[in-house]
Design a protein around this nucleic acid. Sequence first.
DNA 1: TTGCTGACGAACA
DNA 2: ATGTTCGCCAGCA
Length: 110
Amino acid sequence: MPDKLDFYEKVYQVVRQIPKGKVTSYGAIARAIGSAKSSRTVGYAMNACLKTDHSIPAHRVVNRNGVLTGKHHFPSLTAMQERLEAEGHLIKDDVIINFKDVFWDPFHEY
DNA sequence: TTGCTGACGAACA
DNA sequence: ATGTTCGCCAGCA
C-alpha cells in the first residue's frame, strides 16, 4: 500500500500520543514506527505537519540531546520554546533542562 | 531520472 | 573529545 504515506501516518500517530508535559526525540519516533534509521525523515514529516495539521504537537519533538533544533521552522523563533515552557519545561540555550526526566519513549507504549 | 538537501543519529578515524 | 561519513527517505530542481 501507500508505504510513503504510511510513514507520515505513523509519525503523526506517535506524536499525537506524546503526553502533555513530556517530550520525545526524532530517533525514538523512528524506532517506534519501525524505521530506526529514518530519524531525518521524521523531522521532515514534522515540518510538513506544521503547515497542514495544527493538532500535532510538533514542539514536543526534539533531537536526542533535548535541543530544540526545529525551532527555526516555527512561525516564531521563540514559539517552540514558549510552548514547552508553558507545559512546564525549563529551557536554557535551546536545550531542555532535565530532558532525561521528561523524556517519553513511544517505544515503551508499544 | 539524477542529484542534493534536510527538525537525526550512529559509527568511525 | 571532535570532526567526518554514511544510512535513511521524502521533496524539489
